[in-house]
Amino acid sequence: MTTIEVNGLRKRFGSSAALDGMTFVVRPGHVTGFVGPNGAGKSTTLRMIVGLDRPDAGTATIGGRRYAELPCPMRHAGALLDPHALHPARSGRDHLRWLARSQDLPDTRVDAVLALAGLTAAGRRTAGGYSLGMRQRLGVAAALLGDPPVLLLDEPFNGLDPAGIVWMRGLLRDLAADGRSVLVSSHLMSELQDMAGHVVVAGHGRVVADAGVDELIGAYTSLEAAYLELTAGVGGIR
């Protein structure tokens, strides 16, 4: 059972504070939604958890260790942060193959996650020709390659067709039900209401609410109403 611990992250970009003491814990067993206005610091937080961005202060750990300290890190945490982070001339399958080698995983894992993402046929084509929805599927396949106990996904529903949205919803719920810690940033409150067990609401680079979905629905009638109430007056981009 691996948790994600975000503790007092701070980051300034020029004169504006992107993160101002972001602190929360993601526990296994349910999907945790990560919501907040644009510029609230969600993506920066996710990038810091996997070491792409450097905090000015604070720590982010996975099972007590920084991502960069993990051997074969993709076996400990899978991340879909940027569906376009691939080489357009490489096929989807080859993209996963080099990742598998880097994590000391066999090619059988590549075919397993391609099938899981519904890309078995498309995997032979170059990824440059993929639509956004297909890139999201490839990104999910890459995140699941190492069968990690922790998953981080930034706006995974973007660009998915209706069938893809249903697929993603079921997949994330199943992954959490297996006992994984799943952190999903999204602006789609109705999706999260059906899928997430817990929600972290961010604003101005810190947490403004951290509560169970049922709790929020009980207090505000719906997750969307709760979100709008909690983030009223909390701007994102300043």
Partner: peptide
């Protein structure tokens, strides 16, 4: 290409 962000995850 943007591949660097995946490379740094690996």
């Amino acid at each position: 290409s943007g591949l660097i962000r995946t490379s740094l995850l690996a």
